[in-house]
């Protein structure tokens, strides 16, 4: 099967999945929950600060929540990709596709395209929401929204690819979701704990904690390449500083990250087969 054929098949598979996703309730429900939560913490938090002394210095009161919403939705869609990938194998619907013109590459690509298209829908809805909030409150969105949007797309791409990658190794839908969310939680927790440990002055740490911090710092060198959260942090800093080169690098790294994981997912699927 040649490349255009594969893309055609992937697009058809993605179209069906997207339709299925958009006809379901969970995407909308999750988006609303995330929007309400992040708005409460982000927008509400900004106004709480402003209310304390009548003013506040804030860097990204709208783009920050927008980016965070996008990332959470990307994680949700990543878990959705993992669930859908593993569940289709579990239920045998993937096997039916493989009776026909679908192969491992077009299947992995189709699943990925579906999640990315769903993310685009989410990104549009999220952008509209935060632009409206910005207009309503006066909190600035600015050009950063566009850069954060682009970064969010590439980040989502990596996170979704990660979901598919994990789903290749398990044959139970819930197992795939649990494995994926556990890994995502480890990445996020590591980033938070490491960031927190860095912020503590050395004098306030015991020797054991200092060596733990050194250990975390060394581990961070690996995490910089393995964890999407590290790319997230790098990209966020690049956007905040208006550093186009760093931004370009982060986006390119995320692209390579996603492509590598998708290629691995394809190889694993081909090796393990599509049968339940």
């Amino acid at each position: 099967m040649n490349v255009p054929d594969r893309f055609y098949v992937a697009a058809i598979v993605a179209g069906r999945e997207l339709r299925s996703t958009l006809y379901g309730l969970s995407l909308y429900l999750t988006l609303s929950l995330v929007l309400v939560t992040i708005s409460y913490l982000g927008i509400g938090g900004a106004f709480f600060q402003i209310g304390q002394s009548g003013m506040a210095v804030l860097s990204n009161p709208v783009t920050g929540p927008f980016f965070l919403t996008s990332v959470l939705m990307a994680i949700y869609l990543g878990s959705g990709a993992a669930l859908s990938f593993a569940r289709e194998r579990e239920r045998g619907t993937a096997e039916v596709l493989f009776y026909g013109p679908v192969d491992s590459i077009s299947y992995v690509l189709g699943k990925y395209l579906h999640s990315m298209l769903a993310f685009m829908v989410v990104a549009v809805l999220t952008s509209l929401y935060y632009l409206f909030v910005s207009a309503l409150t006066g909190l600035q969105a600015g050009m950063n929204l566009l850069w954060f949007g682009i970064l969010a797309i590439f980040l989502a791409s990596a996170v979704i690819a990660l979901g598919e990658f994990f789903a290749c190794f398990v044959r139970r839908g819930m197992m795939a979701v649990v494995a994926y969310l556990a890994v995502a939680a480890i990445f996020i927790l590591f980033s938070l704990v490491h960031g927190w440990m860095i912020s503590i002055p050395g004098e306030q740490l015991s020797d054991t904690m200092i060596y733990l911090r050194i250990f975390l710092d060394r581990l961070d060198m690996v995490m910089q390449w393995v964890s999407p959260v590290a790319y997230f942090n790098r990209g966020q800093v690049a956007v905040a500083h208006g550093n186009a080169i760093a931004f370009g690098w982060t986006v390119a790294e995320l692209f390579v990250y996603a492509v590598t994981l998708l290629a691995c997912a394809t190889l694993v699927l081909r090796r393990r087969g599509v049968r339940p």
Binding site: Y23, G24, Y28, L29, S32, V36, S39, G44, F132, L136
Partner: peptide, 26 residues
């Protein structure tokens, strides 16, 4: 930047809009 705290109801109501769309479709 001068800001005016908006009514929370509008912000959260708008955030709940996707859920309403989802309910209609479902």
């Amino acid at each position: 930047q001068s800001v005016e705290p908006a009514a929370n109801g509008v912000i959260y109501g708008l955030a709940a809009l996707p859920m309403l769309i989802g309910l209609v479709i479902a």
